[in-house]
Design a protein around this nucleic acid. Structure first.
Lengths: 143, 143
DNA sequence: CTGCTTGCAAAGGCTTTGCAGAACA
DNA sequence: TGTTCTGCAAAGCCTTTGCAAGCAG
């Protein structure tokens, strides 16, 4: 059995557990969407998730994909990325890490965590605390 | 004469020069929009720029505000910020600096440049070079 | 004159919502 | 049986564009 096959039952069982552990009830559609998202480390737009998810089996509606991705992000299962104005991207890795972004190709890729460090000594404004740090390194074609 | 009055002629002359030096022909509307934007260090949405610009004198259309802000950003006169999916923000300071962002209040504020440092040793992907680094520190209400 | 700019309205693209039916507990 | 979830279509919002009229050089 191919362990990366999103349709094998072991993978499916892990996804169900993962959803439950994040307080998300594992409906058929949510499991399918989460399987697509979490198959490998990747950065996908909602539209891409929709397309990939619907390559097999019973299709999931666009509204459900958008709503589920929003839910997953709120529950901390995936991370929502704000790299440009065009569309949201969703990152299957939630551990702290940063990104290169090429606006021309709309490609996002992780920066090796070893090679970037952010040092912050500033106090957050009154009555607020830091919920996350996002570093986006914008790229352009050389020359 | 109040030197911060956006309608005094000295300020206006500086704006015209500034636009010219960025390769932007200084039409009446663009000077008005740039005056609003550059009056002080600030972070404004297009809608806010529209409202502020049209508080005095002959109104500028929404399309012209959007197009001009896009032009200014492309020419390096202001900086476009990608902090959330809702809308773009424009920053009147173009020198490298980073931001706190409170998604609940939609407030952006600068982080004291002294108190944040980013160390990047990663090589950008092939045939690309770094065009800018954006650090956004997301905030949430304390507790 | 000739090309750039404006401004209105309309279109466009991404995302959310209303609501009826289906699934679930 | 009551609550939650889905999915279609429609609406909503920010932003861009088409095009005719205006302005600048």
């Amino acid at each position: 059995m191919n362990p990366t096959d999103p349709h094998n039952s072991e993978h499916r069982k892990n996804i169900v557990q993962l959803l439950r552990s994040h307080g998300i009830s594992p409906t058929v559609q949510r499991v399918k969407i989460a399987s697509t998202m979490l198959l490998r480390p990747q950065h996908l737009s909602a539209e891409q998730v929709l397309t990939l998810t619907n390559q097999t089996g019973r299709p999931v509606s666009k509204a459900t994909v958008y709503n589920s991705l929003g839910l997953f992000a709120r529950k901390g299962l995936i991370r929502e990325l704000f790299v440009d104005q065009e569309r949201a991207f969703y990152d299957s890795s939630t551990h702290p890490h940063h990104h290169f972004y090429n606006p021309l190709t709309q490609e996002i890729c992780d920066i090796d965590p070893e090679s970037v460090s952010v040092n912050l000594n500033a106090q957050p404004p009154a009555d607020t605390e830091i919920s996350g740090i996002e570093v986006v390194v914008h790229l352009r074609p050389k020359q």
